[in-house]
Design a binder for these strands. Structure first.
Lengths: 144, 144
DNA sequence: ATTAAATAGGATAAAATTGTCCTATTTATA
DNA sequence: TATAAATAGGACAATTTTATCCTATTTAAT
């Protein structure tokens, strides 16, 4: 459904949000460990997220990544997915047609529209804060 | 959502079904033209579909691909997707975790379960015959 | 000032997916 | 029987995605 890069992006952002709520900034190394992702590749993903103002990066010793409390509540998964994978998940035709819309639909257009709408709705209504609920108590996990 | 191979598989199967309903067998060349796909790559996909008994292939002059009337009604999109892309679409974790289930879920497990169930349900309830409805009259399209 | 720890980013490599090419085989038909 | 048209399938090539490596830059702390 999402690219690997996007999966890492969501998991990394969620972990950064979790630690930011505790008031601590986290390093790339720690993030990659905690979400079980390749370090250097995760660095690229975090660069993208930083450029898209989804995470804040601080350079230098004691630097790392963080997200403001306000943004933890405001940033939705949809923004992260869009920043990494673009709008293909939302708009692309299920059968790969370039031109597929209500006027000239593929045979499953209407059915895909519904499913994509549900997905979009979910992504637009799930904040990073929502993602962190349950993580502390170990009810949910970002690795394995 | 699906691989290119799977998109071609669904479009090709649908076109073959359409022509089989008219009582004619179709060649690889014609299929690729009508669904606007790369010929040689489509050949590989059709080989897979043939091995999985989704389409029947006939070798030699006047040969080609066809689907029995019975199978046009019975074969669902789910079988095609499974034959080409495996069960990842149905079972894979939305965030890419290898182990993600009700016991040890990722933060969006429940939400993804719902969306995937809807997708699965749609794929399991859409037959190739369903796919052909509207194609003849030009209400739907398999190319562009 | 030096050092060490951190992100930024360019270059490159590996892997997976997508796509092409060529030959073998099959089979209807002239 | 020879030919032409079709699928089967192996080998290879191109592209995209994923991943790694190395150097530059920034910055806190000694």
């Amino acid at each position: 459904m999402f690219s690997k890069a996007c999966e890492y992006a969501i998991r990394a952002s969620t972990y950064i949000a979790l630690k930011s709520l505790e008031g601590t900034r986290v390093s790339l190394k720690e993030i990659a460990e905690k979400i079980d992702s390749p370090v250097a590749f995760t660095a690229k993903v975090l660069q993208q997220l930083s450029k898209n103002n989804i995470v804040d990066s601080v350079k230098g010793a004691t630097g790392g990544f963080q997200i403001s409390t306000q943004n933890i509540s405001n940033i939705k998964l949809a923004q992260i997915v869009y920043a990494i994978d673009g709008n293909n998940v939302y708009e692309g035709c299920g059968l790969g047609l370039k031109k597929c819309n209500a006027n000239e639909p593929c045979p499953v257009h209407d059915k895909f529209v519904q499913i994509r709408a549900d997905l979009k709705n979910m992504l637009e209504n799930t904040s990073l804060y929502d993602m962190t609920i349950g993580l502390e108590e170990g009810l949910t996990s970002l690795r394995r």
